[in-house]
Design a protein around this nucleic acid. Structure first.
Lengths: 211, 211
DNA sequence: GTCCCTGTCCCCCAAAAGTGGACTTGCCCA
DNA sequence: TGGGCAAGTCCACTTTTGGGGGACAGGGAC
């Protein structure tokens, strides 16, 4: 039996969820609270395997609660539960280590199914949320690799060090080369990248995912 | 009826998929191919609403095919289909705009269900893939932690321009200020960021999502 | 009121960065 | 088999930065 704790400020909904989970033969309710004010104590006492967390709660928000849970014990799976598809909240939840993001519009079947899959080590999102995640992802990550600047190995070495804030001297020391040599690498690199300063090169490298 | 085209080099599997899709009353098979060598022509002739794409095919890979489809017509939904949970391929697929990423271990029910949800505008991933995506996401995205450097508005302005490769002079010109003023901002900023060069400041700003 | 942060400006000076050559070594290739 | 060419090594010269000072007005904070 999977021990699960619910945080949900809406009384009827919380009772419904509790009933649904208790009725299933896979879950046993460890606890059900209308808010997360005393969450750490609740968790310590009940030791749930997972938590179903409403995002919008008075007092401690679901997001804060999520962070506290993951800090307390990252093994506890946390599924966020909300009516809104708010990009920022989705984004924050994911970054805070949420294991799932379900809309309240999901059916009981879907909910149970999803919770089981999370317990099995997966992560779940309703398709509309998944769409947003993928969109966000594609926007954030795509260090577009399209541009190929043909930097030589040495040039990339140098670039990596520049990104760490090294000066010509420090790079030279690090690579056991003369400073003058470094100057040339950088010079040629600037030509390839079409920049004229370290900061521009570093910015380009980080933004386009070179190195 | 949703028009769908299949690319799958494994003959029995392709035939099975075709049969399953044809048997459902939601889909109609627009085409089924063992490879994507002539994909653009295939798409032009059949005008499918969506594509189920095997990733590992001889000749044109599923990844390449995905990119071609999205370039040809981004409206066509593409669901990637594979046996492997390969991080790189997941990553690339997402960045190339895939609308879903299904493992071949999914049941027929799940497959049909998922394709329907994609057609409805969602995105789908098997839970294990979703887990990887979330992990990648949390790693890639915004290291924007609580680090607060208390940069003033002007300092942030300057920082933004430095990231664009501007020199002190250019920043001064852009903001209609004396170069000496810019020097002061940058000096104070360096102290706050605890760096000693433009490149280090730019790197820090980009890595930690300041500005 | 005084203290401290911001915004604006100034000087000086040493160090670092940016640019223009120049030389050697390989390697590709015609 | 000699020319071209990218990469690796180095020097000289000019500009830009970085870090050290100060100055002064306006605004909150205390």
């Amino acid at each position: 039996m999977i021990r699960i704790t619910i945080f949900e400020d809406n009384d009827p909904l919380r009772q419904l969820l509790a009933a649904v989970l208790n009725a299933s033969n896979a879950f046993t309710l460890a606890g059900a609270y209308p808010d997360a004010t005393d969450i750490l104590n609740d968790l310590k006492q009940e030791q749930p395997d997972m938590v179903l967390m409403d995002i919008d709660m008075p007092g401690v928000s679901g997001l804060q609660a999520l962070k506290m849970i993951k800090q307390f014990n990252p093994v506890i799976k946390v599924v966020m539960h909300t009516v809104f598809e708010d990009n920022d909240k989705i984004f924050e939840s994911i970054c805070a280590g949420a294991d799932g993001y379900l809309l309240k519009s999901a059916t009981e079947q879907e909910l149970l199914q999803s919770l089981l899959q999370v317990h099995a080590g997966g992560a779940i999102m309703t398709p509309s949320v998944a769409r947003k995640v993928l969109t966000l992802f594609a926007k954030f990550a795509p260090a577009k690799k399209g541009e190929e600047y043909n930097l030589s190995d040495r040039e990339k070495d140098v670039l990596r060090l520049l990104i760490k804030g090294y000066s010509y001297k420090m790079v030279a020391a690090e690579l056991n080369l003369a400073v003058e040599t470094i100057r040339t690498y950088i010079k040629r690199m600037y030509e390839k990248l079409q920049v004229h300063s370290m900061s521009a090169a570093v910015a380009k490298a980080l933004k386009e995912g070179l190195v």
